[in-house]
Design a protein around this nucleic acid. Structure first.
Lengths: 337, 337
DNA sequence: TTGTATGCGTTATCAT
DNA sequence: ATGATAACGCATACAA
């Protein structure tokens, strides 16, 4: 390994001079700086982030926390899109990312300890169970954090606009003439609560009466669960004309159940999803859904975190709500006229 | 931050003793060791991986390289499943993972430099353009590496069994009475070459004549491209009875094109995919495809890499071929009798 | 403009 | 059984 000591010997200057020259300090002569840099290049010098971290107390490394409490880890398209955009933005800003997990080998650790162990400058928390005491500890620690889809007091967060998203879907479906709308929701997280509340509120505003049996619990990202609930809906004496699924993937479970009953979409039953993952627009018919701005969310999360890391004095906790977009698709029949 | 120095003061012993006690060295009295550990717990001591890395020359950190040359980055289910299993196994073995990329902030870097910069003990290379000189440099460097789906000379690798996978699919389709089989293939990587060669060889063994216009180039993970090629196939004077798609996702493009022509699957046209991602078995009809053992591949990659890192002397390059599994699904019609 | 000295937190060697 | 010391590679305050 080539170190600044090697360069200093090769150049006949001190290590301090080499360090300064390499970092473009002002108090080094043009000539020396050039000679040092040239030698560094010639010897194939690579800075050592570890040493720099130890010395400076800054790792330029941010942790990413993806516990998969909501049943969906990295491998769900929504979260992998977020991960990808966090990664891209972090790298653009000069930060590497490391996954933060519970336990490492034999060593029992919670998230906070793991982040400290790796000297992370900050952590992006996504897809986690925000009730988990280990998550709470991290979010309340001195480590800068940004959470996605949940907001802790006095901490920064990025929220998908679940309220407006659900409202947009309900209004769209209503505008197509639907009055009997069923809603399958995921596990009771704060996101679910927002969507459910927005669903009910918007229905009320539109004067829609939603019978309680039209609102049923399912499980996010689990087609089977949504399939079962779809069947239950179909067995009701009075069927809905449109079913809201917890997410795009869950819709697939409903899709097969509908087919099994010989119902076609949207002629016999209308459906909408949520998330707007690429898959939803590749299906035929294209799914009517609400696209969450996953890329923006990841990008903003990284940006906000780095801002907090680099300007700790002027920093204030901030919540950014990322707007999404209604994707009309072709799965909601027009019942008008 | 609590350091061993703090503990040493609190305990009235030297830092060396603390370090030894904490690491369970044999030459520390039972009593002292216990007192030190208790104090460490009381003070909330956390070891500092950075300092340890600097001192020991081992980071317990492995790099993961996911350039998305094949058009599919982390967000494709096959790769995210691999990533997830690499992560899980690495963590089980006591290693963290860090993404390796080109360039970090302003700092221009290639993959090798990035890995050195972060003192990675080794790198798992996946989803990359293995012709890329930067990838080649890394794979030929002194850094331990394991590649997925490609094999460099004298380096360890994990290969999905593309030859047997394709053979299984062809034989299955043939056994269902199909004789006119079309093959849409992805970009010409070594994986594609293996699948294509296995396709042709198996067809030859079965006495099938495949006209050249039945073999067409498409793009991995790109439904649009496969949709276009599907259309081209349908315009031929003599249509195939079954279409092989480059992968499960690409099939979706074909699916909509088939529907557009009023053809239903598998009554009017049979199809098979490749990958066997969860999505394929959630679709209706379930896609006939070949499931690659993504979880095993990731797990084995991590295992092989750590083995190489921890037993450098007894290590020999090794290639593990991970078998997959035919998923019969319901998209291949039985033309027999 | 350059160099000296010091320390970041840890582990390892070698005395004691 | 314990401790003093050095070293890993780097950056910086301060001296020259």
């Amino acid at each position: 390994m080539v170190t600044i000591t090697d360069i200093s010997k090769a150049c006949g200057v001190s290590r301090a001079t080499v360090s300064k020259a390499l970092n473009g300090a002002a108090d080094i002569s043009q000539e020396t700086a050039e000679r040092v840099r040239e030698t560094a290049r010639r010897l194939g010098y690579l800075p050592n982030a570890t040493a720099r971290t130890l010395k400076m107390g800054r790792s330029y490394n941010i942790g990413v926390l993806f516990s998969d409490a909501t049943g969906g880890g990295i491998s769900h398209e929504y979260f992998s899109m977020i991960l990808e955009s966090v990664k891209a933005e972090a790298e653009r800003l000069g930060y590497d990312i490391t996954f933060i997990s519970r336990d490492l080998g034999k060593r029992p650790m919670d998230y906070y300890e793991h982040a400290k162990y790796r000297s992370c400058d900050g952590v992006v928390i996504a897809s986690a169970d925000f009730q988990d005491p280990a998550i709470v500890r991290l979010a309340h620690s001195e480590i800068p954090t940004v959470t996605l889809d949940y907001s802790f007091d006095s901490r920064s967060s990025i929220l998908s606009d679940n309220v407006r998203g659900m409202e947009a879907l309900v209004r769209y479906v209503h505008s197509r003439g639907h009055r009997k709308i069923a809603f399958l929701h995921g596990e009771m997280t704060s996101v679910t609560q927002k969507r459910l509340a927005s669903f009910k509120k918007t229905c009320a505003q539109l004067g829609l009466e939603i019978p309680p049996e039209f609102i049923r619990p399912a499980v996010y990202h689990d087609p089977r669960s949504s399939g079962l609930q779809t069947r239950a809906l179909l067995e009701l004496p009075e069927r809905p004309s449109c079913i809201f699924y917890p997410d795009d993937l869950s819709f697939l479970g409903g899709m097969s159940e509908l087919e099994r009953h010989g119902l076609s979409i949207p002629q016999d039953m209308s459906v909408v999803g949520y998330d707007g993952i690429p898959l939803s627009q590749v299906l035929r018919p294209r799914l009517t859904t609400y696209r969450q701005g996953a890329e923006s969310m990841g990008r903003e999360a990284a940006r906000l975190l780095v801002e907090q890391i680099e300007q700790p004095d002027t920093w204030l906790p901030q919540t950014i709500t990322v707007a999404g977009e209604l994707l009309p698709g072709d799965t909601v029949a027009d019942l008008n006229g």
